[in-house]
């Protein structure tokens, strides 16, 4: 019996022979598994996105009918984006800040902590259980406990320690964005401290041994010259997905505040969520569609660019920059 993939390659693709009955049976089997998800994809993804594109140029009236609105929603979004202190401008800026904090603080810490777990630091088993807690316990439970704790409880505690003017970090609009940002970093380690150590474990132990023979003996050298290059595909996946989600991730604002977050804490994901769900008013939908389209036009090509650059610098790829250098050497 021939492996289907090889058989099809030989019969149906490489040469121009007639497709055999067995090959057709394999195709039918494959398509029968795919027909239902593809149908759902066509209706709930392709149609929805085409309709969203059209909706961006329309108004939805009270009776549900739609009328042509031209570029009005785009103009509104761009005006608000560049306004002095518009909500959209705050949301956009905060989304970028959240992404940069994630990239520059969370990710390096995740990698360092993952390396420690991989090296089986003390209490590593206990730590692996504890760090998953924000993912295991419902996000709103964790958020609300954090909110109560970081709000009134922490304020009372600090006052009892003599800091009489210590603010309520969750109510004071000057501190609320910083506090939610801290929460997003604090609770972001869970699954990454499972995935990265597993990726590190998949590296061939022989590589460490040969590196030690070559005189590579410190943790930093091992981390920098062996671990990071060899887990780069996993790292790259998270970098790309993180960038792609920059404008859609609402963070913990819904569980923290439902629809009534202070304007200083808004991000784009939360802004779009509030527009759609707070009043469930279809008249808001075209504005969201236009905003989404403009953001997609900016973020989508940048995401593809990030992916391209990461692919080029991937040390594990033979056709990447380092792969070619290796070949030349």
């Amino acid at each position: 019996m021939i492996k289907p993939a090889e058989k099809v390659t030989g019969d149906a693709f490489s040469s121009k022979k007639r497709v055999s009955r067995k090959t057709v049976k394999e195709w039918i089997f494959a398509y029968s598994f795919l027909v239902y998800p593809l149908l759902l994809f066509a209706v709930f993804y392709v149609y929805v996105n085409i309709d969203s594109f059209i909706l961006a140029f329309q108004d939805v009236n009270i009776d549900g009918s739609r009328t042509f609105a031209g570029w009005a929603h785009f103009k509104y979004f761009l005006t608000e984006l560049f306004a002095e202190s518009g909500l959209i401008k705050i949301s956009f800026t905060n989304s970028i800040k959240i992404y940069l904090v994630g990239l520059c603080i969370s990710m390096p810490l995740q990698l360092i902590f993952s390396y420690l777990l991989f090296k089986k630091c003390f209490a590593h088993r206990l730590i692996r259980i504890l760090v998953m807690m924000p993912s295991i316990i419902s996000s709103f439970v964790f958020c609300l406990v954090f909110r109560s704790f970081a709000g009134s409880s922490l304020q009372s505690l600090m006052k009892s320690l003599g800091f009489i003017n210590f603010p309520n970090l969750m109510d004071n609009s000057n501190y609320v964005f910083g506090t939610t940002l801290f929460y997003s970093v604090w609770s972001s380690f869970s699954s990454s401290l499972i995935i990265y150590p597993n990726a590190m474990r998949s590296v061939d132990p022989g590589i460490y041994e040969s590196a030690q023979i070559d005189g590579m003996c410190t943790m930093f050298q091992e981390f920098r010259y062996i671990i990071l290059p060899l887990i780069f595909p996993t790292l790259s996946t998270f970098l790309v997905l993180g960038f792609a989600a920059m404008m859609t991730d609402s963070g913990a604002l819904v569980p923290f505040f439902m629809y009534s977050a202070p304007s200083t804490a808004y991000n784009m994901g939360y802004y779009l969520t509030v527009q759609i769900f707070s009043e469930s008013n279809p008249m808001n939908y075209p504005g969201v569609a236009a905003a989404g389209m403009l953001l997609t036009v900016v973020v989508a090509p940048l995401t593809l660019l990030v992916r391209y650059v990461l692919d080029r610098i991937d040390p594990t790829r033979e056709d990447g920059i380092y792969g070619k250098k290796r070949k030349t050497a």
């Binding site: 209706v43 709930f44 993804y45 149609y47 929805v48 996105n49 309709d51 969203s52 909706l55 961006a56 790309v240 997905l241 792609a244 989600a245 920059m246 404008m247 859609t248 784009m268 779009l272 969520t273 759609i276 469930s280 279809p282 808001n284 939908y285 075209p286 969201v288 569609a289 236009a290 905003a291 989404g292 389209m293 953001l295 997609t296 973020v299 989508a300 995401t303 593809l304 992916r307």
Partner: peptide, 17 residues
């Protein structure tokens, strides 16, 4: 591509559909 390509703002259309 679908995984990495962010298409934003289609929730309204999804809701209508």
């Amino acid at each position: 591509i679908l995984m990495i390509l962010p298409i934003i703002g289609s929730t309204g259309s999804a809701m209508l559909l």
